[in-house]
């Protein structure tokens, strides 16, 4: 059967792709290789640390994270029109470990359930009819996810 022939082949391809999913930034873990079974992703998606300042920019940037569209963030009073579709992001670094934040940002559906409105920022399992030029692309790159996670981890109520 075609099924039987296909399966081992596609597994091999997937694994190979997972080890070396090379984007512009070099070696990184592919979106479909992430293991959400513990509701946390242990290792950096790029093997590198995230940059806090860059993460802060991405949080506000409409064309990238646009997180303020849905989250109030009082650490960022200069960003106007902070939305309240999601909970306030204040103190999120107290509530979640970096490994959990990495999972939330990469694919919130794996944490909050399929119905969540929060987009999956590092997943290719998205909606139908994706805009032509965005096909096969994640919203954020692996390094951008790391940067956002690094920034979120600094948001603690008690400092």
């Amino acid at each position: 059967m075609i099924e039987g022939l296909n399966r081992p082949f596609s597994v091999v391809v997937a694994v190979a792709a997972g080890i070396l999913w090379t984007g512009a930034a070099g070696a990184q873990t592919a979106p479909d290789e992430l293991d959400y079974s513990e509701y946390a992703i242990e290792a950096s998606l790029t093997g590198e640390d995230g940059a806090v300042a860059s993460g802060r920019e991405i949080f506000a940037d409409r064309s990238r994270g646009n997180c303020v569209a849905c989250h109030v963030n009082s650490e960022m009073p200069e960003a106007d029109f902070q939305g309240n579709v999601g909970p306030s992001i204040d103190g999120v670094g107290d509530r979640w470990q970096p490994e959990q934040l990495r999972a939330i940002v990469s694919d919130a559906k794996k944490i909050f359930g399929d119905q969540t409105i929060m987009p999956a920022f590092y997943s290719l399992d998205v909606g139908i009819n994706v805009r032509e030029d965005l096909k096969g692309k994640t919203i954020l790159t692996a390094q951008e996810v790391e940067d956002v996670v690094a920034y979120l981890s600094t948001l603690k109520e008690e400092q």
Partner: peptide, 27 residues
């Protein structure tokens, strides 16, 4: 049906979150 890279359906915004603000927009 959810569409696009942001993976949202009409219902996600207008049924699930009407009354909330998304950026400056009151849904």
């Amino acid at each position: 049906t959810r569409t696009g890279q942001l993976d949202l359906a009409c219902a996600t915004c207008h049924e699930g979150y009407n009354g909330q603000y998304i950026r400056a927009d009151h849904l």
